[in-house]
Amino acid sequence: MVSGIFAVLLFAIGIYCILATHNLIRVLIGIEILIKGVTLLVIAAGLKSGNLGLAQALVITIIVIEVVIMTVAVGVVLGVHRLTGSLDARNIRKLKG
């Protein structure tokens, strides 16, 4: 119950970070915090339902997906920086092939 509330708070912090910033690295940090909220919620749900084994397996899957997303996103951020010379998300509004 308490963990659920704090997971929602982490989710809110992540969403706020993504919405309020223009820096691409901060957007990725916001996504990371969102995923941390989800991780906490999955483990709390597993503990509550008595199915902690499944919850842990799901968390491991989430972490693997998280790492891959971050690696590719970091590559994209570096590419954007190479092209525009900054990390401002407003510079990539006009996406052209």
Binding site: L47, A55, Q56
Partner: peptide, 9 residues
């Protein structure tokens, strides 16, 4: 997570 008894995660 350790406190919640999920050491592998």
């Amino acid at each position: 997570i350790f406190k919640m008894n999920a050491p592998l995660a």
